Amino acid sequence: MDEVPADLATIGPGVYADIENDAYHSGPGISKSGLWTIYKQTPRHFKFPAPREESTQATAAKDKGTAFHWAILEPNTFEARAMRGPEDRRGNNWKDAVAEAKNTKRLLLTQGDYDDALVIRDTVHADAWISALIVSPHSQVETSSYWIDPETGVLCRSRPDLYRSDLGVMVDVKKTRSAHPDAFARSVIEYGYHAQEPWYTDGHLANGQAVNGFVFLTWEDKHPFVTARYELPPSIVDEGRAICRKALQRYAECAKADEWPGYSGEITELQFKRWSYQEIDAPIEEAA
């Protein structure tokens, strides 16, 4: 594992542990999420994102997500890192709990969120195969990989949820409304998980790390928190890699010119699928 520089702005190629999540996301390098924004929206959406919401609700959701990841990926240390607080975030009971959590350096959760995290932990690790894959001295949780893309010269970064260094296997944890195979396949395309897999694996390969497999561990966000594990076929991974290449090239061009365009400034005629026509016949030239 490489040593993190004192100034993250100077970071170079390597695999690093112990980079804080916020520092990673605000630091140098282009990530898969940035490329996906460029691909699905525009470079302007990437360069000038909407300010992050800082409401109590947004903070609670972020803390809940962090806790659930700990429960799944680092189950043996969850109780030491999280604190079971009051039923809700109102009143003096919550204020007192906030003070206690700060003093003990733990993440404060409502009773419900804490208990749900334990249920998710027990559900995931009831699967002996996935539990053995996650709980190992060879497991590297949320390490950060940086590399230079040889075609564009751009600094790239990725942060896989878990990497088993002895097996060369990555595990990516995904919360989902439905873990049914058909539903998750749609999520793969909608959220670009097929681009995420090659981006993560190529980043580790660029740093001399073997990658022999990639597993998506999905869990439903409502009781009973049903889980499933999936892998992607090579063809859809190749599609994701092509998406990354196209977006990365666009990013490099925008960065070089320091121009970040939005949608076309031209007046563009909209195109409609054949199913859009209900009362009249669709034009022959319209797409099927």
Rank of each mutant, 00 (worst) to 15 (best):
V119T: 09
Y114F: 15
V154N: 12
L108D: 03
A101S: 13
V135H: 01
L108K: 05
I120E: 04
R90T: 03
P137G: 07
E87C: 07
H138Q: 12
I134P: 01
W94D: 03
Q140M: 10
E151W: 11
T143S: 04
V124I: 15
A101R: 00
A128L: 10
V154G: 10
R89N: 04
D96A: 07
P86G: 08
D96R: 06
E87P: 02
D88F: 09
I134E: 01
A128K: 13
G85Q: 14
A126Q: 14
A132C: 05
P150I: 12
Y114Q: 06
S144Q: 11
T104S: 04
S144R: 09
I130L: 13
K105W: 00
Q140F: 03
D113V: 10
H138E: 09
W147P: 04
V119Y: 08
A97N: 01
E142S: 08
I134V: 04
V141T: 08
L107D: 00
L118A: 01
L155I: 11
L118Q: 01
K102A: 05
D149G: 13
D88M: 10
A128H: 12
V119W: 07
V135E: 08
V98N: 05
Q111Y: 09
I120A: 02
A132V: 02
L109H: 08
S131T: 07
I134T: 01
R121L: 10
T143G: 02
R106P: 01
W129D: 14
Q140K: 11
I130P: 03
A126C: 13
S136C: 05
I148Y: 12
E151I: 10
N103P: 00
I134A: 00
A126D: 15
S145C: 14
V141Y: 04
G91S: 02
A128G: 08
H138S: 12
A97W: 03
Q111N: 09
A126T: 11
D113R: 04
V98R: 15
D122E: 14
P150H: 12
D122P: 08
A99E: 11
D127K: 13
L108R: 06
K95Y: 04
A99L: 11
T123P: 08
V119S: 04
D127T: 11
Q140R: 14
E100V: 08
V154P: 10
A128T: 14
I148W: 10
P86M: 11
N103M: 06
V119M: 09
G112M: 10
V98C: 11
A97F: 01
L133A: 11
V135S: 08
L118T: 00
G112N: 14
A99F: 03
R89G: 02
N103L: 06
T152H: 13
L109D: 05
R157H: 11
R121G: 06
K95A: 08
E100H: 04
G91C: 03
L107G: 00
L155D: 14
E87T: 12
K95G: 00
L155E: 14
T143H: 12
H138L: 07
I120N: 02
T110E: 12
L108A: 09
L109P: 05
E151T: 14
V119K: 12
L133D: 02
D115F: 06
E151L: 15
E142C: 04
T143C: 05
A132L: 04
W129S: 14
K95F: 03
A132R: 12
D116T: 04
A97P: 00
S139K: 07
P137C: 07
H138N: 09
K102N: 07
Q140N: 10
L133W: 06
R90A: 03
D127W: 11
I130F: 11
Y146S: 07
N92R: 09
S145E: 03
